[in-house]
Design a protein around this nucleic acid. Structure first.
Length: 454
RNA sequence: GGCGACGUAGCCAAGUGGUUAAGGCGGCGGUCUGCAAAACCGCUAUCCACCGGUUCGAAUCCGGUCGUCGCCUCCA
């Protein structure tokens, strides 16, 4: 198995030291609804996790919730509610989104506010070792103390200072020094610490949680490419400084960012589509096919057309899985060949696009066997197996339409009578009117079936 | 300004030294059907932004040009 780590920028053999893969994926800051850019990242890492499990690894998966930070405080103040209440609301909403997207639960979801003792322990260690220093506004990490600082984002301190907008009047020794602990301002949520009351800086919670729940060296650390700098760079500097052990992370995996039109989708740009918006229009499988049809490190541009194409693709896979075969002749699907193609694709830095192509080839094979009167059981089982590795449910969508089912069945019965009476115009009208309501009818030798069109 | 990524058919998107350049969507023709739909079969890039170079051989390596995007500030 080969993966590309951001640290070296080229494919390397994936060799975790044990049978358990320690995986940490940066989670959300819950101050608003999550958008489909988040969905992209979490779907990708969910597929990676599922694949590692499929390959026989035991995966321990940790995802943080950064439930205290500037944005939460600002938003909560504007809404005149406690920061904790705002964070809880959107954390719950995030979990609901993840469930609808068929994303497996993490083993642990540590919250920043519940990890303060560990955070303080790490900061204290960094201060003791000279990697950090307290000032009146907080505690700062001393970037000059880390000769490797910049290695993840492939830049040097000099080049950063040249391009950075330096805020004047700060008590930092170096402009790139960053806060580990922020002293509390009046009215802000705060916790006691050896440096006065305050709250954690942005990057420290991930170091603390990763150390606490996964240990000093983890196998995979994932997140969006926008986190490479400063977040992950700083996280690595803190963690390696604190433990004195390198590497903190064996493989840094970063997904490309979702674009909307010509720009990245982000909260600050305001050009976002929430996961709930997207799921109101498209199935979770369609969203997943859309995302996994390109390589995880490449940027992807959202468009309704692309999602509609993905929805039709999803429908194609569902049809192969759900249509009944009439034959009892033995199926001659070569399951091992498909498994091998699928595995080769995913082994090559998680080439989900090629893995999906295997699913579509398999679907065609299933349909062909069915049309030729063979049993398709082997093929269907294989499709469920491989689609499941990518996190696709292939559940038929009429499951979500059950209230209307008896009435649709009634209309199908009436249309059957009309067809038998050769009243084709009226029969077609029933079909057309149902089509306008997004119900598609299909006449088969076994009778008429229906399904949701979108 | 610094760092990085990308430019493949109508659209999306794999492929990173040598097969017929995957797959999806769309389109066209056919089979099936009362007609459709779905499904199946066939067709749909002689060519991979452009210009040079390396090589017996390049979409794939190197240099340049043009274009797009990301990071350098909160962000998955």
């Amino acid at each position: 198995m080969k993966v590309t780590s951001t640290l070296f920028g080229q494919k390397e053999e994936f060799l975790p030291p044990g049978s358990e893969v320690k995986m940490y994926v940066c989670g959300v800051t819950p101050y608003d609804e999550s958008h489909i850019g988040h969905a992209m990242s979490y779907i990708i890492f969910d597929a990676i996790r599922r694949y590692l499990t499929y390959r026989g690894y035991r995966v321990r998966y940790v995802q943080n919730v950064t439930d205290i930070d500037d944005k939460i405080i600002d938003r909560a103040a504007r809404l005149k509610i406690p920061a904790s209440e705002l964070a809880k609301k959107y954390t719950d909403s995030f979990f609901a989104d993840m469930e609808k997207l068929n994303i497996l639960k993490a083993d642990v979801y540590p919250r920043a506010t519940e990890e303060i003792p560990k955070i303080i322990e790490v900061i204290k260690g960094l201060v003791d070792k000279g990697f950090a220093y307290p000032a009146s506004s907080g505690v700062y990490f001393r970037v000059r103390s880390d000769p490797d600082y910049g290695k993840l984002s492939h830049r040097t301190l000099d080049s950063m200072v040249a391009g950075a907008r330096i805020e004047p009047g700060e008590e930092k020794e170096h402009p790139m020094d960053f806060a580990l602990w922020k002293a509390a301002k009046p009215g802000e949520p705060s916790w006691p610490s050896p440096w006065g009351t305050g709250r954690p800086g942005w990057h420290i919670e991930c170091s603390a949680m990763s150390l606490r729940y996964l240990g000093e060296t983890i196998d995979i650390h994932g997140g969006g490419q926008d986190l490479i700098f400063p977040h992950h760079e700083n996280e690595m500097a803190q963690s390696e400084g604190f433990t004195g052990k390198k590497p903190f992370v064996r493989y840094w995996l970063h997904n490309g960012l979702l674009q909307l039109g010509e720009q990245k989708m982000s909260k600050s740009l305001g050009n976002l589509i929430t996961i709930k918006d997207a799921l109101a229009k498209f199935s979770a499988d369609a969203l997943r096919i859309f995302i996994l049809s390109s390589h995880y490190r490449s940027p992807l541009t959202y468009s309704e057309e692309a999602l509609e194409a993905a929805e039709r693709g999803a429908e194609r896979l569902r049809t192969a899985l759900h249509s009944e075969d009439t034959g009892d002749k033995a199926s001659n699907i070569n399951a091992e060949t498909y498994r091998q193609r699928f595995t080769e694709a995913m082994d090559d830095d998680f080439n989900s696009s090629q893995a999906l192509a295997v699913l579509f080839d398999l679907a065609r094979d299933i349909n062909r066997l069915r049309d030729e009167g063979n049993s398709t059981e082997t093929g269907k089982q294989l499709l469920v197996e491989l689609a499941g590795v990518l996190g696709l449910t292939l559940k038929s969508r009429e499951d979500t339409f059950t209230d209307a089912a008896p009435f649709i069945e009634l209309l199908i019965y009436i249309r059957k009578q009309l067809r038998e009476a050769k009243q084709y115009q009226l029969a077609d009208m029933v079909r057309n009117k149902l089509a306008e309501l997004d119900i598609a009818l299909e006449d088969t030798p076994k009778g008429t079936s229906w399904k949701r069109k979108r």
